[in-house]
Design a protein around this nucleic acid. Structure first.
Lengths: 111, 111
DNA sequence: CTGATACTGAACCATGTGGTTCAGTATATC
DNA sequence: GATATACTGAACCACATGGTTCAGTATCAG
């Protein structure tokens, strides 16, 4: 591990699992208790609990105990850093392609 | 695992590690052999080899054997799916916030 | 040809991940 | 109060991850 950006680590890490992306999509429609999510995704409550924990640690989900349920909603993190990172990357790739193109153009002229 | 989108899994998974994000940034400046990358990031060749393999599997890096070196360049995948996923998500969050706002507005009027 | 350099592959290690079961505790319902 | 429901936490499991070392093989330089 060389450069720490824990927000990016946890955000990308959370998004790397299809169940967790599914949970985010599900919570986009409406909030839900852990038990409901577990049933939707056909896994044990305890299993879903762990996914929710990962999403919560990444700031992508917020939870609150209501009666005997724990209600989950989409959390405060908007993935701005993640988007920004990818955008930066995209620009780098494009700059690199541009340089390559310029190089090819130059060598063509030299022929 | 519930909905398979292996491209997203591997892309987000690859980006979840700071060393690998660093390697992508480094390759954005110029291509490099595995050995150079290993030295830059102060790890063994074998260690770096594994990171490069992960990036290559995700389509983010391409490699080619040149003499005794293996040269690494930024690969074909442009992270379009990843960006698209995040964008979708952002829209969902915003729609949800809009609904919440509308609800608050309505209940305010009812007062 | 010899030696140094660059990589490859296998084996190992500690820790993390994605799940499970099982034994609690807390809350709701009758 | 008894029973069912919802969660929590600990323990376990198989497998993946992020590293290492070590023993090769391939290539370059003299």
């Amino acid at each position: 591990m060389v450069q720490y950006q824990p927000a990016l680590d946890s955000a990308f890490g959370a998004l790397a699992d299809p169940t967790r992306r599914g949970v985010l999509a599900r919570l986009g429609r409406s909030d839900a208790a852990i038990g409901e999510l577990a049933r939707s995704f056909r896994m044990t409550l305890t299993g879903m609990q762990k996914h929710v924990r990962v999403l919560e640690d990444a700031g992508l989900v917020a939870t609150k105990k209501v009666g005997r349920e724990r209600r989950c909603t989409l959390g405060p993190r908007r993935l701005d850093e993640a988007t920004a990172w990818i955008e930066d990357y995209r620009r780098t790739v494009e700059a690199r392609l541009d340089r390559l193109e310029a190089f090819l153009e130059r060598t063509k002229e030299e022929k």
